[in-house]
Design a protein around this nucleic acid. Structure first.
Lengths: 200, 200
DNA sequence: CGCTCTCTGGATAGATCGATCCAATCACGA
DNA sequence: TCGTGATTGGATCGATCTATCCAGAGAGCG
């Protein structure tokens, strides 16, 4: 056993923050789910709830990135990889009764205008995702600027579909977002062969 | 003066819920900003905070829809209209120091798995937006199913760009989302002339 | 005027919030 | 074996939360 208490706290916090948000989750509830005590939390996180939240944001953000990269790596090409990400997200949504979507989006919106340290933590996660996505498209031959646009677009589609999907309890938004993501990515790849302006 | 107290409560609630979320906003703060008393709130909304929240979600959702439709109507064509929506959203984001984005997204994520009546209220707003958007694309000659996909895609891009933009304090995600939305919409319109399969 | 219904002023209850305290317990090296 | 620092058990504090209560002010109508 030893000291996995800290891990259990971060784990419980991740689960609860993701589904109920930061303000909607009480410390007592976190302690209960983590089988821990007040003293343990304030020992590992002297800054209290906010310091725990920073760790939760970083940990769950990194964890989700690794999950997505694993899915992406398993695909034979970029377009298939992008599609697999959206399909995986839809599958998780349904499997968890529309509870598990983006691990940090709820908190990100909550703190964006009210808690600067936490806002920065969420921004760093989104930046990391953006850079990782950008690198993938660059590896496929897409230019740097366009790759970054693609990465932001894919992440935005994913986040937006999470919002709509959780609210309406439907994977239809995720399916539409997947189609759009595939269309945009495929178009960028197609344009590599014909660098001239797009035919319109 | 008479009884605009109810309106002031809904107005203050809209502002605060949008920026701080539901759980992050106390009733006292709403009363303070609305210059009202406990008795007034519980007179107009016997169900308390949740009943007020339902009204806030409906009112701000409808208000935002009307705002977007006004912008859309002012554009000469569909593609220009879609672009104008994203540009307007980016302008508001910057003008409000990245505080005012989607009026209900924060609450929607908070309540999606914790408060069924409020979740339904947010779902109805998103459904209304989806139907309105779908109708616009249908009016442009796009098929019903594809129009719905386009509407969901545009809304998802907007919502996702709101999340990324508020967190990173940047309008870059909104700009990328705008490009993607224009690309997808334009492609759907182009395909109207050539009903055969898309060239890939 | 007097009745009634709508609405508000303000105090307060009861619960929960985040946070702190100190003593007890644990692991581990000297 | 002793001691030292890391960790935990559990009570408790003050603040804040949502909600309720009742008396009183105001408008409309007979």
């Amino acid at each position: 056993m030893a000291t996995d208490t800290r891990e259990r706290l971060v784990e419980a916090g991740s689960r609860l923050f993701q589904r109920q948000g930061l303000a909607g989750t009480g410390i007592k509830q976190i302690l209960s789910e983590a089988n821990a005590q007040f003293s343990s939390l304030y020992h590992h996180f002297p800054g209290g709830k906010d310091e725990l939240a920073v760790d939760v944001i970083r940990a769950s953000g990194l964890h989700y990135q690794q999950l997505v990269e694993t899915v992406w790596d398993a695909a034979p090409d970029v377009v298939t990889g992008v599609r697999a990400i959206f399909e995986g997200a839809a599958a998780v949504l349904e499997a968890t009764d529309y509870a598990d979507a983006c691990p940090i989006a709820t908190v990100a919106l909550e703190v964006a205008s009210t808690n600067e340290p936490l806002r920065v933590a969420t921004a760093e996660v989104f930046d990391a995702w953006t850079h990782a996505g950008t690198a993938r498209f660059v590896d496929s031959g897409v230019g740097a600027a366009e790759s970054r646009r693609l990465a932001l677009t894919v992440i935005a589609l994913l986040e937006g579909a999470f919002v709509l999907g959780r609210a309406t309890r439907s994977v239809e938004p995720m399916a539409s977002a997947a189609e759009a993501a595939v269309t945009v990515v495929r178009r960028a790849l197609d344009l590599l062969g014909s660098p001239a302006g797009s035919p319109q």
